[in-house]
């Protein structure tokens, strides 16, 4: 890499002002044009709940909701997200009240090392925000967006299924 480019970046020549909403809070920061949403969240805002597993969109551990839809934060340039509303894992629980899926993940033993857990929850929250109750195939498709090496997925599937049942009985 050319040293001039590096020093230019260091001096912040190419930064731009970014304004967006994260977990309901308005954020305004000067960011480099190539900074990813994941770096913006983790390094600029200190929201470390979104995990870095590969930086290539392969492991899925960095999933966040962008305007309500799950996206991989490691693949998104933050500068493209002007005026977007981002929800990270830190913004899922309402106060101390966990989302039913979060509680189910705990109760069903779906959490082992926990590194994939935030992304699993993010994708699940989106899945359960839809109108209809997801079937087994939709649940597995949703879970397959994130790589988990600990659980063999069985307990995670179970947590999603029990959440689906619970929400069918008692929609939020």
């Amino acid at each position: 890499m050319d040293t001039r480019i590096v020093s230019a970046a260091r001096q912040g020549v190419a930064t731009r002002l970014l304004s967006l909403e994260v977990n309901g809070q308005r954020q305004q920061r000067a960011v480099a044009p190539d900074i990813t949403l994941l770096d913006f969240l983790r390094e600029e805002l200190g929201l470390t709940g979104s995990k870095r597993g590969c930086d290539l969109g392969e492991c899925g551990c960095c999933a966040v909701l962008v305007d309500g839809r799950p996206m991989l934060a490691c693949l998104l340039p933050a500068a493209d997200l002007e005026h977007s509303a981002i929800t990270t894992i830190e913004g899922i629980a309402e106060g101390t009240a966990l989302h039913p899926l979060q509680q189910a993940m705990i109760d069903e033993g779906a959490v082992q090392c926990g590194y994939c857990t935030p992304a699993m929850v993010i994708n699940g929250v989106h899945l359960f925000s839809g109108e209809s109750r997801p079937d087994a195939d939709a649940i597995r498709t949703c879970i397959s967006a994130t790589s988990c090496r600990c659980t063999g997925y069985n307990r995670i599937v179970q947590a999603f299924q029990s959440t689906a049942e619970r929400l069918a009985e008692d929609p939020r």
Binding site: T48, A93, Q102, Q112, G114
Partner: peptide
């Protein structure tokens, strides 16, 4: 369930690269 499971489902659990 793991005693720190709630930290893990809320993103509060602190892994090595999460330390500042």
């Amino acid at each position: 369930p793991q005693i720190d499971a709630r930290d893990k489902v809320t993103g509060r659990a602190r892994y090595t690269d999460d330390i500042r």
